[in-house]
Design a protein around this nucleic acid. Structure first.
Lengths: 189, 189
DNA sequence: GCTCTTCTGTACCGATCGGTACACTGTTGA
DNA sequence: TCAACAGTGTACCGATCGGTACAGAAGAGC
């Protein structure tokens, strides 16, 4: 029983990577079976709802990972400026400098958006919210903090698109560096 | 003969919209047949290469449209600042404030990227190039112009992702307004 | 030993996939 | 008038799709 839970959770990273690489439609069950090394029997045992339930589970795990590694630190860190800086390095690592797609962003551009809309919306809403809080605590004027947070979160998503299309990871890192600079409070000298 | 050419070209917008809405894998031939009102016979008459050729044709038409409406004006306009401003309004209109997906960006995030990589790369490269030229002519220091152009083009792509995920077209317009402001040369008072 | 539950592989389902074959319509130019 | 051909509809192809059924392997608790 405890074993099954552990196994199901172990599948999620593999599932996530498969959906990242092939999208929702493109990730066929046979592809998923190959990637996970499991037959349909096992897959439907863990995810009776089929592909849709797999994506839901993956999205939940992604949100949990970001909650623990990005959102919560942004909200709670003693040093908000350091937390924001850490966010940029964490995200650069997570997206492999743009070589790895953001599943949430990719799904948002696909027709799967309508099916998983709530999870996609919440992911970005939480991110913007947490970053807004950190920016405010770091000294940014509250009236512009949300806008800046949206600029940054959106900028990161755009950097993934651009770096992937141009096949230039350096572009991803350069853009994130620029966003990071904008996140710093302009202090006179 | 002239008629067939006209008809084939007339298909492209419908095809483009279908691919935008459903992606490469999701846009099945039966869906395309329904959207265009043509049977498989006609579709394969116009596009013997099947779906792949349809996407190629659509991407070529998109590039041609941007070349005429965005890239060329950026490169050649007498007033580069006005051309950049016009780009933002044109693009806001084209992407329906983020309600409409950028097909090139969406394909870049999908596994179709490998198949159409060259066309995707060229679209963004041309855009960055043309915008860099306009920014430089508008008075931006040449060493930072390409970086700013990348920020803007990437920022637009990210705005599409974010606005679609959050279901907030206002966010798209706000981000584009911010990017537009950054494109203006900082003049002392 | 046994039972009960968890987990797995395989066979199978109807539907749909992308693509092909081909007969047919309509128009056009000689 | 008639051959040539662009354009179309339909039937069909094998392959694969997501999903189901189910028998049996594997392991835990007793």
């Amino acid at each position: 029983m405890a074993r099954s839970v552990a196994q199901r959770d172990d599948l999620l990273p593999v599932l996530a990577e498969t959906f990242r690489e092939h999208g929702y439609e493109g990730a066929s069950l046979s592809l998923i079976a190959t990637a996970t090394g499991l037959g349909k029997g096992s897959l439907y045992h863990f995810f009776p709802g089929g592909k849709a339930e797999m994506v839901e589970a993956v999205l939940a795990e992604i949100e949990a990972w970001f909650e623990g590694n990005v959102f919560a630190p942004l909200r709670q860190a003693d040093d908000p400026e350091a937390a924001i800086a850490a966010m940029f390095t964490t995200v650069t690592d997570y997206f492999r400098s743009g070589r790895r797609v953001c599943l949430v962003g990719a799904l948002s551009l696909s027709d799967a958006r309508d099916r998983f809309g709530q999870a996609l919306r919440r992911y970005f809403a939480l991110w913007v919210e947490a970053l807004t809080a950190a920016l405010t605590r770091a000294g940014h004027p509250p009236e512009g903090a949300t806008a800046l947070a949206e600029d940054i979160v959106g900028g990161i998503q755009g950097a993934v698109v651009l770096a992937r299309a141009l096949d230039r990871p350096e572009t991803f890192e350069r853009i994130l560096g620029c966003l990071r600079a904008r996140s710093q409070v302009a202090s006179s000298a």
